[in-house]
Simulated scan of single mutants.
Amino acid sequence: MIHSDAKGTIARRVAQELKNDDVVNLGIGLPTLALDYLDENVNVILHSENGFIGLGPVQGIENSNLVNAGGQFAGIVSGGSTFDSAMSFALVRGGHIHVTVLGALQVDVKGNLANWMVPGKMIPGMGGAMDLVVGAKKVIIAMEHCCKDGSPKILNHCTLPLTGKGVVNMLITELAVFTVQQDGLMMDEITEGINIEYVQARMEAPFSVNPNLKVNPVFLSHQ
């Protein structure tokens, strides 16, 4: 499936960060779309905290016993394994996950992440995010640049309860790509047709600009 909106732009860029033989955990929602854009020569090993390694696309009849952490039907590739939650989180806490890609409610200049609850709203639980952000070797946040009401998600300081402190390595939105440096955020890439002032006006946090700033082409859907 090809997504021609902001989510598709983000997912396509996320896919470029996933390398052959990486063990990858994808958060529910937008991060899972990255699989639609993986290069055909790149094979990643998908981990799901509900007890799978080697998840793949659904093939043939849907099996209600095979679902990812978001409750979506999934398949399992040859050589994949199932196990209990204790083993699943041993993989996470043992540093065996190369990359985790997660959505976010807020990210700030120090790489702090808030993505698990909004006070006063019903939530199903914190899930595995708190373990993933400290156990994975690389934490990528994939999110739309602003909230639905246009308010910024990239802040000086997160105001929502934190998932982790100083855990974010890379932030990918439909407008730009940032890395978290010791002194704050650095813009490494910007989407074609967007200028730096446009991006800054849509976020609270300041950022520096990489002198080798890359311009990413606008994503066009296949017709």
Rank of each mutant, 00 (worst) to 15 (best):
G70Y: 07
T100W: 02
V42A: 08
A129W: 00
G95S: 08
H157T: 15
V99F: 12
V101Y: 05
M122F: 02
I172M: 06
V133M: 07
L102H: 04
M126H: 11
H96W: 06
A136E: 03
N169L: 02
M122I: 07
N50E: 12
V77S: 09
A90H: 10
L102C: 00
M143S: 08
S85P: 09
M87C: 08
I140M: 06
C158V: 15
T100F: 01
I154W: 04
K138Y: 06
H96Y: 12
N169K: 01
V133A: 10
E174P: 12
G135H: 09
V118K: 14
I140G: 11
V42N: 03
L113Y: 01
S151E: 15
P152H: 10
D131A: 14
N115G: 15
L55K: 04
G79M: 07
A136G: 07
L162D: 11
N156D: 13
V44K: 12
S85M: 12
H157Y: 11
P161F: 01
S88Q: 07
H96E: 09
N112H: 11
G164D: 04
V101K: 11
H47G: 10
F83R: 02
V67I: 14
V168W: 02
N169D: 15
A86T: 15
H145T: 07
I123G: 06
G103T: 10
A129Q: 09
G51Y: 09
Q106S: 13
T163S: 14
V92Y: 00
P124D: 07
E144R: 12
P57V: 00
D131H: 15
T82S: 13
A136K: 01
V44T: 11
G94W: 03
K110R: 14
G60L: 03
I172C: 03
G166Q: 05
I141L: 09
Q59F: 04
A176I: 00
L132W: 03
K153S: 14
V67Y: 04
P161K: 02
G79W: 05
V92E: 02
N156W: 09
N63F: 11
G51L: 10
V67N: 05
L91P: 12
S64C: 00
D39W: 00
M143Q: 13
L132V: 03
A74C: 13
M87T: 10
E174T: 08
G111C: 09
F83E: 01
G60A: 05
G111P: 10
D131K: 08
V139K: 06
S78A: 13
G70V: 00
I76R: 09
K137S: 15
A104C: 08
I97R: 01
K148D: 02
N43Y: 02
L160F: 07
I97K: 09
T159K: 15
Q72W: 00
G135N: 10
D39K: 12
E40C: 05
I53C: 06
L46F: 10
G94R: 08
G79Q: 05
N41K: 15
G94N: 06
H96R: 13
D149L: 03
P119L: 05
L155V: 03
L171A: 01
I97N: 10
V133S: 09
D149K: 04
D149F: 01
